[in-house]
């Protein structure tokens, strides 16, 4: 089994992620933005990554695809749901993980894990985009702050504005009106993040919120959101390195399992 190569591909709405494992260790990862017209296809990306590592396509033992577009990867032998992949990816980094919250761009999901890292239960957000990463993206455009710096800014907010709208579109204009009323960008951000955190926290409560809680997905990189969630839960939450590739990593880890018993 030493040195076996497994690949995970996570095809999301906004980006595609690839992870390569060799002998259970992360060998390479890559993120391709969907909006970027120059972006490589998953297959080309994988070829390039393998070439960089001095490996050939034939050496890959197993490829697993996950994410909303998981059926669009012809070279994957199997597919696995995001829930199972995020859980496995989070558990890889933190064996203490019992609750995993994945804040993706359009989907938020909470998973409950047992000691072996198996998913025992999960809940997902509804058909409305309120409280997802995409919601934050819309607001980041309006406030002209990058998604990356958003959380940091919010942490330094002196106060918090109430953002009450459910609908992303209405929230957008609520935010615009707050700007026009001269409210500080920081406080507005803090309000937006609070609103998003509340939505995610509802899912955490539904699933039972057992420590250790691990955050994954793009949203987990937002320190303001993490802090807001920690305050609501009264509980420290952990974020793995490169949280956005956890799904792809989990898929690759599933590849290891599935090569044994496909």
């Amino acid at each position: 089994m030493e040195g076996k190569i497994c690949v995970g591909v996570d095809v999301g709405t906004h980006s595609t992620k690839v992870a390569i494992l060799r002998g259970g260790e992360i060998l390479a990862t890559r993120v391709m933005r969907a909006q970027d017209p120059e972006a490589e296809t998953p297959e080309a990306a994988l070829r390039a990554m393998l070439a960089e590592a001095g490996l050939s396509w034939k050496e890959v033992s197993f490829t697993v695809a996950t994410g909303v577009g998981r059926d669009t990867i012809p070279f994957a032998q199997r597919t696995r749901s995001e829930q199972l992949c995020h859980a496995r990816g989070a558990y890889y980094h933190f064996p203490q993980a019992r609750t995993v919250l994945d804040i993706g761009s359009e989907g938020v999901r909470a998973m409950r894990l047992n000691e072996k890292g198996e998913v025992r239960d999960f809940v997902c957000n509804s058909k409305c985009a309120a409280g997802t990463g995409a919601f934050l993206e819309v607001i980041s455009e309006v406030l002209e702050v990058s998604i990356g710096e958003m959380g940091e800014l919010a942490l330094r907010a002196p106060g918090r504005e109430m953002v009450s709208s459910y609908c992303t579109v209405f929230a957008e204009s609520e935010v615009i009106s707050l700007i026009h009323r001269g409210r500080s960008k920081w406080s507005i951000l803090a309000g937006v993040i609070q609103a998003v955190a509340e939505r995610s926290f509802e899912l955490l409560k539904k699933i039972g919120l057992r420590p250790q809680v691990v955050l994954t997905g793009g949203g987990s990189q937002n320190p303001g959101l993490k802090k807001a969630l920690e305050e609501m839960a009264g509980e420290e939450m952990w974020v793995p390195p490169e949280p956005q590739i956890i799904g792809a990593l989990g898929a690759a880890l599933w590849g290891e399992v599935l090569t044994i018993s496909p």
Binding site: F170, E174, S177
Partner: peptide, 8 residues
């Protein structure tokens, strides 16, 4: 909607 909230 926005303006209105202002002038609730």
């Amino acid at each position: 909607m926005s303006i209105q909230q202002e002038q609730r």
